[in-house]
């Protein structure tokens, strides 16, 4: 298989927590092939992500099916992930699942309203920051604040939470 085909295999692996693929989430950085060894470069959304082991296991499992017998090396590029790496398709998938991606002013994924307020700095996962929509009352999470201080500062003057 060519590196591009292998990248498609890895890119179709889904995240353990949200039903979004690694390519859509921007976690897949590159796949290279040397002789019998496949090197997969991945970027964790947050250094403390507890899903890294499971993601690596899924990638190895997918590659074992697609290219049996080939050695796989997974390289984590720490700090390389940026919210901008999420693809447009990934943004749509995340929005449908009730998430927004950090970067611009966050909008409610349910009603599209812009009157939202941060409801604390720490969400149910280290990659999420909880927000409230004051237009429709929905609670939603914004994904990805590591290396994105602009997103943290957005509604600084009216943040809630601790």
């Amino acid at each position: 298989m060519t590196p591009d085909q292998l990248a498609d295999v890895v890119g179709a692996v889904t995240d353990p927590e949200i039903d979004v693929t690694l390519r859509q989430l921007g976690v897949l950085r590159s796949v290279s092939l040397t002789d019998d060894r496949i090197q997969v470069n991945l970027a964790p959304t947050r250094l403390g992500c507890p899903g890294l082991g499971e993601i690596a296991r899924r990638v190895r499992s997918a590659l074992a099916d697609a290219a049996p017998g080939q050695e796989v090396e997974i390289v984590w590029e720490r700090g390389a992930w940026q919210p901008a790496a999420v693809t447009p398709a990934g943004r749509d998938v995340l929005r449908m699942a009730g998430y927004r991606v950090a970067g611009a002013d966050p909008r409610c994924p349910y009603c599209g309203g812009e009157d939202v307020m941060r409801a604390g700095r720490f969400g149910g996962s280290v990659c999420k920051v909880p927000y409230d929509c004051r237009a429709c009352g929905s609670l939603f999470d914004v994904i990805g604040t590591a290396g994105c201080s602009a997103a943290l500062a957005t509604s600084h003057s009216r943040q809630g939470g601790s």
Binding site: L47, E77, R78, G79
Partner: peptide
């Protein structure tokens, strides 16, 4: 470059912790 981006991520995340402890 790889070390720099990892160190930057550590700093970003620790700044949030620092802010929490300061509150």
């Amino acid at each position: 470059a790889a070390q720099l981006s990892a160190i930057a991520a550590v700093r970003e995340e620790q700044l949030v912790h620092l802010d929490h402890w300061r509150r």
